[in-house]
Amino acid sequence: MNLPDDFVFSQTSLQDYVDCARRFELRYLLRQRWPAPEVDDMLEFEARMDKGEQFHHLVHQHLAGIDGEVLLPRIGDEDVRRWFDVYLKSGLDGVPEMRRPETTITTVLNDTMLLAKFDLLAVKPGGRALIVDWKTSERMPSTERLAQRLQTIVYRYVLAASGEAFYGGQPIPPEQIEMVYWYADHEGATQRFPYDAAQYATDTAYLAGLIEEIASRPNFPLTPDVNRCRFCPYRSLCDRGVQAGRLDEWDDGADEIDLTAFTLDIDQIAEIEY
């Protein structure tokens, strides 16, 4: 076992592993920072991240009970205002009433923790359980591509495996679970992924196998697909190139942006000299 005993897997770390084992090792096992650019146009990339964060925050505020009419006039960015307007019109259509924004669930698989952080979890005890993921990307990936993404696999699996606290203490039947990607930049278009027991069994085996493989492997090789390295900050560490890839070639519909990468460290207050 080469994992620390408090290690927690997530869809992002598993996706990293599937994309490149070495990247997984560097980022999650060695926790090595490597601050090279991921794309050529860093500022545009940051602006997109910022807009995405603003939109997610607005939806969180709305789901926490603040009226949309209070929020809408305070939005400075045109794109974000348009997205939020679309959300107010149709974002919650068909979403069960018991809504829990920004909810994290962790399960245990193969004696290892596996975490999913949902933008929105809406569960009707005894009825449907809906996972909603807000997307602000310009592109919509194909259904086939999304179905293979670890996010789709991990989110539905974790809810089926450990969602009982939200379902009256009973496990949520996989058939009641659905994952929805909601696209703000496409007038609220959705891609939907229902679930069932057969898929749950398949996912269980797949994820367990993946975790077992990671835990037992003696080394973590570089991906053979050098094309991926263009958008990986570790490219210089791995001698896989100099320039970052072009932003317009970056697949923003599939690649996840970690919106929590630069959070405010409020607890600095206790760390200073007086």
Binding site: D5, D6, V8, T104, V108, M113, A161, A165, I266
Partner: peptide, 20 residues
Amino acid sequence: RRSRVKTAADVQMETLGSLA
């Protein structure tokens, strides 16, 4: 995290500062 109790890692940790 080490307990391997399902969902135990989801317990929230806050200080007054972070909650504020």
